[in-house]
Design a protein around this nucleic acid. Structure first.
Lengths: 201, 201, 201, 201
DNA sequence: GATGAATGAGATTTCATTCAT
DNA sequence: TATGAATGAAATCTCATTCAT
């Protein structure tokens, strides 16, 4: 607490890509404490770099948060939609994506938690926002395709259907995180099936 | 800790006024800027009181946030569930509550926004949390009743059904707030109907 | 005439001399918490008066402290020197005063503690200081008289002798208060006798 | 080459050991204004550092005061008791220490004044208190030794004798500080001799 | 006169950012 | 290039004092 003695500190591990290290550390500590709750020195410590180094790679905390947000949004989009079976029918697709959503939240809870944080909202700039809506548009178009195919109900706009399904997912995860629920795989499956029936009418 | 109640003294209207003014102003500024984003002097300014006055009525910012949270949670519960028609069937009930949810979000956007804020989570104490789960339990029991009546599907636990419906609602409002959607009354109605179908299977 | 609030208010004890009540309460709370450690509302509460009432009787906290200091200094002087036996010899006088010092510290610990407080020093004004030195001067003259009578050693100025004796007393009490000592009556007696021998050489 | 900004910058003197600078400045300003009377920014200014820098070296104002207290208590003990002549008899020892007490108060008046402050008492933690009594115990044992040797009177406990002598010293310095006395070297010598006679009986 | 709610200046402490090394 | 000690603006909270009732 008192003298910051250099001697007692453990040797700093060699880091090849400091930028990546900072971003990964940011994900961890922000997921834990929220963006507002984590001072830069704490983040630097976790990343194994000096405080000043953060500012060699990012112009400000804001910039770092935005960078991280965009990176993770894109990573999420990839996890959800890349390598989907081209022959799969709508239901198989829907179920596959639903499952991937939960896999993501379970396997990379820091990334998921960070994306769902609200307290970075004032930090988000236009670039981050427009990326967000671009990704959404793709999914909305798929939903629209399902409507054209006669699979999804047509009396509700596709972006509304998507909002309902996404909200259901988000709230399931949140309820589990808050301790109101515990979700088995069977729960996830039947919840996905229920969302499907919501879309098909 | 909060109201300086001198034993059994009847509350003086002047006191209630400032206290209420502070709470209402807090709702406004927190909804706008988040709990972390609003310094006490700004809140005091909006409430039309001095900085120190806040601390006459609330022991700390934490205490104020918790008080506000509980107050609004209870107000929300009242708005959603009080004076429901006793003769209404399950569907009418469901639709009525669904409509009330949107009415609340529309008519008192500050209160709704504040309740949905995530950045007050670290502020919430046990009393606030337990209130939260108590309110939830009531709704879950209603859902369970619908299952027993054979109205809702029984293969999904009622708390999961509720989580899906609530998440759908929250995300619709959030999407609209973020500018991704604009919801007409017809949209709200059909979305409600879709959530109903999700519950009935 | 009849304010209805009187009925519901906690019964405030009738106070004839609010000024005296304030001073006595000040002695208590300052002795307990130091001058800096006690907010005016706490003092008002203890005195059984309203906060504002303090300022009807004293211009400021400073003024109150000074008033209290002078009052207690005078009271102390009276306790120590009034009604001393006119026929008593120097030793009897010395022992009597020594005993009265301890009686004062034991019987009115709040007053003694307050007088010994250091943290009111910045508060003390010229009037308080000059009173202090006027009282001292009287005792110094008595010591000088003892020297002239050949009772006290003459190679040390009387004010120095007094300073030694008074310091011994103060530190005995302080040591006891801090838990380093416990003083029996025999201890007090022999300590007084030792101080006497210090003065006589 | 020559950056003209150097000239316009606030000319802050270079400080090698900021921690030491802070402690020394604290001694100065606390001695002057008391612990309660000095805000951290004032202390920082005097130390020639920024406000925040204080908190790099000390967890809180409390911690700083305690650190300073212990540091100075130890320094005082060293000044009083280190390198005492091993061949000196009891009287020479007593006189030497008595002289050192006054040297300390004269040569480092800030340190002496700080140690005598009462308003840091609420700040002191257990570590500081136990250090205090440990130091005392050593001196008490020396006094006890003198009693065993037949030099000091045995009818008074050694801790009481010490309390009398220490109180005499403290009050002499205080009287001088408050302007009631001016002490020549001869005064100090004879006062010391008087205290010796107090101990020997 | 008496009150105590209200005030805001000022205290302690935090943390995003800079810059000398 | 990398660092982390240093910074000071800004946040939370306190309390001597005022003034409407």
């Amino acid at each position: 607490m008192n003298t910051p003695t250099h001697l007692s500190r453990p040797p700093r591990p060699r880091i090849k890509d400091k930028r990546a290290a900072i971003l990964r550390a940011a994900l961890e500590v922000f997921a834990e404490g929220g963006v507002n709750g984590v001072p830069i020195p704490v983040l630097a410590d976790r990343a194994g770099v000096g405080t000043g180094t953060i500012y060699r790679y990012f112009a400000s905390k804001d910039a770092l948060v935005n960078e991280l947000f965009r990176e993770q949004r894109i990573a999420l989009a990839k996890r959800l939609f890349v390598d989907l079976s081209p022959n799969a029918g709508p239901y198989e697709l829907f179920v596959e994506v639903w499952q991937r959503m939960f896999d993501f939240a379970r396997q990379d809870p820091d990334a998921y938690r960070f994306l769902e944080l609200q307290d970075h909202r004032p930090y988000l700039d236009d670039a981050s926002r427009s990326l967000d809506s671009k990704l959404l548009r793709n999914i909305v178009m798929t939903y629209h395709g399902f409507q054209v195919q006669g699979v999804f109900r047509k009396d509700i706009r596709p972006e509304i259907l998507l909002s309902l399904v996404w909200g259901s997912f988000v709230n399931l995860i949140r309820s589990e995180r808050d301790g109101y629920l515990a979700l088995s795989q069977a729960d996830i499956d039947s919840a996905g099936e229920a969302c499907w029936s919501l879309c098909t009418g």
